[in-house]
Design a binder for these strands. Structure first.
Length: 536
RNA sequence: GGGGCGGUAGCUCAGUCGGUAGAGCAUCGGCCUUUUAAGCCGCUGGUCGUGGGUUCGAGUCCCACCCGCCUCACCA
């Protein structure tokens, strides 16, 4: 089970042996207050964060600091504590960086040194003093007074190994974030990436918008939704699986360049690449087609990579280099031919025009691969090709690659190729074997859109993910939507690659987990309160 | 949902053939005024995920369940 063990029997009047650590720490609140400190005071005015201490003084020699004795006020969470009699060293951590304090009895006085003695790892303190270098050269604050800022009652993970238990890291991300530097770093980088993407879109005149999370008709993608209910209106609602149809309504309304960075919700399985709620960047650009978005996508990916990788484009993900400097480009059919993994004749573009030939290649694949392709009766050429592509190519697209031209059957919102109506003007971007983005020339002919919806509705009988009819969307298109191209980017997956995080749970602060059962913290606190002041 | 692996002290982990529970760190007590995985001495700390079963005896073997990880299926 992992994690911090729950409190034992409810109503246990005696000090449970197992809760001793917790109780000991709790009892220190009294000791701290008896020294004249508040256990949970209001604020602390600091002059330097640990980072600022480093930046301000790292170039100064020990002698220089000894002369200047620069004064600072620092604060943070106590992470380590070493004491030798009437002095000691400790590290406090703030904003992911640490500063060492040197606390001497003769410098801080009786009361503050008594405080130092009872401090536990995890407590928050403030410290005023001057900066010097120890004999090993570490920048350190020579304390002249201490303030107590907040008590940590629960014990911290071991300082050397940190918090290793994966389950606890996800369930108690608040511990993971301060105990494991890498965990914090992922989310800082994720934010840098999102800011860079926003900047790239904003500077091109895009408007950021927020469209409904709760929708009466779940559209814009093929996926199973979460459903909920609004009481006052007695109305069933779905959490959105995509913002697409609302963003395109905005293009109808004249917001020619719009984007949204927000959550989508899909009621499907969890995996290293899937979390039920995930973050998409979705953007639309009027008077453009999918080809215009190809170059822009390349730029956006490079921008994101550089933001995370300090100007570099080559990420290291699961022992492989993934270089976002450029995007290789293939049509879906070219990819099948070029990347054909099995022995024997490779398919040619000519072969892929014939369903029977394609079925033969599917059979070859099924002979050579563990994972078989199951073609339904009456399968269309396009669907067969898409399945063949997904099975033979997808995981092998490690370097960022743009795959374009998709079969019309699986693309109910995309515009057809003018010379080949079985195929649509659509591309997807793959990297590290994962789909990262999906883009197309938006279907803006309401008559054709109506037919596509009707095809989807007909599929609903055997396909829970089929698209619903959306009357209002058709009405919007009937007012005219300019030629438009749109794209969705999977933010979590891109973050995975750029931060070398093998699972999506490592880039989502609070990934979905099963309920963990009774935690018992209220009971534990209740017990701690009633046994305080008793015999110890 | 199927398959594989795992859950032992607050944390990180050992635990042999089934023989009655171990280490390091942390905590607690003592010594220590430049340490940094501080050090030295001493003491604590466990319904071995939960519930059954087999056995003279179960952390260990069997069954069921819970939680997690990996994997398969659907998906971005």
């Amino acid at each position: 089970m992992g994690g911090f063990a729950p409190a034992r029997r409810a109503g246990a009047a005696l000090l449970s042996l197992e809760d001793r650590l917790f109780q000991q720490r709790y009892d220190k609140i009294n000791e701290i207050e008896n020294l004249g400190f508040e256990a949970y005071p209001r604020k602390y005015s600091y002059t330097h964060t640990p980072t600022q201490v480093r930046e301000a003084f790292e170039k100064k020699e020990a002698e220089e600091l000894d002369t200047e004795k620069p004064r600072v006020r620092v604060c943070g969470r106590l992470m380590t504590k070493r004491r030798q009699g009437k002095a000691g060293f400790c590290h406090i951590q703030k904003d992911g960086e640490q500063t060492q304090l040197y606390v001497r009895h003769d410098a801080v006085g009786e009361r503050d040194f008594d405080l130092y003695k009872v401090l536990d790892a995890g407590d928050f303190i403030g410290c005023e003093g001057y900066v010097f270098r120890t004999k090993t050269g570490e920048l350190t604050v020579h304390a002249e007074n201490l303030e107590f800022l907040a008590k940590a009652i629960s014990p911290l993970p071991e300082k050397y190994h940190g918090l290793q238990d994966i389950e606890t890291r996800y369930r108690q991300r608040y511990v993971d974030l301060f105990a494991n530097e890498d965990a914090r770093d992922v989310f800082v980088k994720r934010n840098r990436m999102i800011k860079a993407l926003r900047g790239a879109l904003d500077s091109r005149g895009y408007i950021e918008v927020e469209t409904p999370m709760m929708q009466q008709i779940h559209g814009g993608a093929l996926a199973r939704p979460f459903s909920t209910h609004h009481n006052a209106l007695d109305m069933d609602l779905f959490l959105r699986i995509a913002p697409e149809l609302y963003l395109k309504r905005l293009v109808v309304g004249g917001l020619d360049k719009v984007y949204e960075i927000n959550r989508n919700f899909r009621n499907e399985g969890l995996s290293m690449r899937h979390n039920p709620e995930f973050t998409m960047l979705e953007f639309y650009q009027a008077y453009s087609d999918y080809r215009d978005l190809m170059d822009f996508s390349e730029e956006l990916l490079r921008t994101a990579a550089e933001a995370v990788l300090d100007g570099a484009t080559k990420a290291r993900f699961r022992e492989q280099d993934v270089d976002f400097a450029k995007l290789a480009r293939f049509t879906l059919r070219e990819a099948i031919c070029e990347l054909w993994p099995h022995p024997g004749d490779k398919p040619t573009l000519e072969d892929l025009k014939d369903l029977e030939r394609v079925k033969q290649f599917v059979a070859v694949h099924n002979q050579n691969a563990d994972k078989k392709i199951n073609l339904r009766d009456g399968v269309t050429l396009g669907t067969a090709l898409q399945l063949l592509f997904e099975e033979t190519c997808e995981t092998r697209l490690v370097q960022p690659t743009l795959i374009y031209e998709y079969p019309v059957e699986a693309s109910p919102l995309s515009k057809q190729k003018p010379d080949d109506p079985d195929w649509v003007e659509r591309f997807e971007i793959y990297a590290a074997g994962m789909e990262l983005a999906n883009a197309y020339s938006e279907l803006n002919d309401p008559q054709e859109q109506r037919k596509r919806f009707e095809l989807q509705v007909a599929m609903q009988a055997h396909d829970a993910e089929a698209h619903q009819m959306d009357e209002d969307y058709l009405r919007a298109l009937s007012y005219g939507m300019p030629p438009t191209a749109g794209e969705g980017f999977g933010i979590d997956r891109l973050t995975m690659i750029l931060t070398d995080s093998p699972t999506i749970r490592d880039v989502i602060l609070f990934p979905l987990l099963r309920p963990e059962g009774e935690i018992g913290m209220a009971e534990r606190l209740r017990a701690a309160e009633t046994s305080t002041g008793g015999e110890t």
